[in-house]
Amino acid sequence: MRRVISILLENEAGALSRVAGLFSARGYNIESLTVAPTDDPTLSRMTLVTSGSDAILEQITKQLNKLVDVVKLMDLTDGGHIQRELMLVKVQAVGASREEVKRLVDIFRGHIIDVTESVYTIEMTGDSEKLDAFLEALQVTEIIEVVRSGISGIGRGERALHV
């Protein structure tokens, strides 16, 4: 099963490597991992996407909780939540496809943030499925480069993770 886990951890040197090291040492999957400081500069917030059997997922949360730098964590997939990912895409934009790409960007509510005679650079946010769908649609032209941030997640409504 695929799980999105949100983690608050001490903003200490090495905290990220403890999480990454845990996953490699125990052979757990990491699909994506994002991390940045929060409004409280002593805390970092991490969103980690992983998958495994129920037993493995239980171990993953327990092992993460066991890390001394981890303050709190929440499995977002346990309840209502929102996932967003940022993607930057550079594509060929010449001839007929130039118009076509622009239309697609509008339909998917992205932005063209850099333009040359032959290239568009596009910014798009959304959940991962939307970004996948957009890439699929972009087959009308040649994709030069794709940069995806990995998921950031947050609980819906009152559901919050804070100290």
Binding site: G14, S17, G21, V68
Partner: peptide, 12 residues
């Protein structure tokens, strides 16, 4: 780094 996988915690 070298002790990380075999300590409960470590500090620099």
């Amino acid at each position: 780094g070298i002790t990380r996988p075999c300590v409960k915690h470590n500090f620099l």
